[in-house]
C-alpha cells in the first residue's frame, strides 16, 4: 500500500468524522443530502458483500466495517433522529435515486469483468460511487449559506478521490501487469465531478469569503 492510498483512505475516514461531528455533536444535517448518504450506504452494502469471503488484510476488513457502519448510522440519524431529522432540507433535496441507480445497474450488467452476482454488484457499486455525490452537489448549489463543516466534508470527499488517482498512477508504474479499467475510468469521472466545487472552494478560501456556489 502506497502513501497516496493510505492518505486517500484517511481523508475518506476524516470526511465521515466531520459529517458525524456535525450530525452527532451539533445535531444538524442542514445542507447534507440524504439522497447522497443513502446512495453511499447502498454503495458500501453492494461492494463489501465479500467482507467475510474475500480476505485482503485486517486493515481492509476493519475499514469496510467502519464505512458500512457509519454510512448506515448517518442515514439513520437523518431519517429517524428526533432533532437531526428536523434540520434536513427535504424540499431542496429533490434528486431521484433511481435516476442514478438504474443506469449504473444497467451499465454494470453490460460492462463488468465476470458475470457473477458478486462481481456485477461490485461493479455496480463502483459506477454508483462515481455519481453518488451528484444530489449533494445539487443541494450545495441551492444552499445560500453553506456552513464550514458541510464545505469541508465535500472537500475531503473530493480530496480522497484525487489521492486515489495518484495511488493508481504509482501502482501502474510499480506493479507489473496492474490495471483496472473499470475502477480507473469511474474514478476519473468521480474526481471530475468535484472540479467545479474545488474551484469555488479554493477561490472563497483564498479571498477569506464564506463558501458559496453560483447557481
Amino acid at each position: 500500500m502506497n502513501i497516496f492510498r493510505l492518505c486517500g483512505d484517511m481523508t475518506h475516514l476524516l470526511s465521515v468524522v466531520v459529517l458525524l461531528l456535525k450530525i452527532h455533536t451539533i445535531k444538524s444535517c442542514a445542507g447534507i443530502s440524504l439522497k447522497t448518504q443513502e446512495l453511499y450506504a447502498l454503495v458500501f452494502a453492494t461492494r463489501y458483500l465479500d467482507i467475510f469471503t474475500h480476505h485482503v488484510s485486517l486493515y481492509n476488513t476493519v475499514m469496510k466495517i467502519i464505512f458500512l457502519g457509519t454510512s448506515f448510522t448517518i442515514v439513520w440519524y437523518m431519517r429517524h433522529h428526533k432533532v437531526v431529522r428536523q434540520t434536513y432540507d427535504k424540499e431542496q433535496d429533490t434528486f431521484k435515486h433511481y435516476m442514478l441507480i438504474i443506469p449504473c445497474f444497467a451499465l454494470a450488467l453490460l460492462i463488468k469483468t465476470k458475470f457473477t452476482p458478486l462481481e456485477v454488484l461490485w461493479t455496480f457499486s463502483i459506477y454508483l460511487e462515481a455519481v453518488a455525490i451528484f444530489p449533494q452537489l445539487v443541494l450545495l448549489q441551492r444552499t445560500k449559506n453553506i456552513d464550514n463543516l458541510t464545505g469541508n466534508y465535500v472537500f475531503l470527499l473530493g480530496a480522497y478521490r484525487g489521492l486515489y488517482l495518484l495511488n493508481w498512477i504509482v501502482r501502474y508504474f510499480t506493479e507489473k501487469g496492474y490495471r483496472q479499467w473499470i475502477t480507473w475510468i469511474s474514478g476519473i469521472v468521480q474526481t471530475a465531478l468535484y472540479a467545479d466545487f474545488f474551484y469555488y472552494y479554493i477561490k472563497c478560501w483564498r479571498n477569506n469569503e464564506k463558501l458559496h456556489l453560483p447557481s
Binding site: D50, K64, Y178, R179, Q180, W181, I182
Partner: peptide
Amino acid sequence: TQDTKEHDEL
C-alpha cells in the same frame, strides 16, 4: 478489457 487485480482497494 480485462482487469487483472483482485479487489484490494476500498
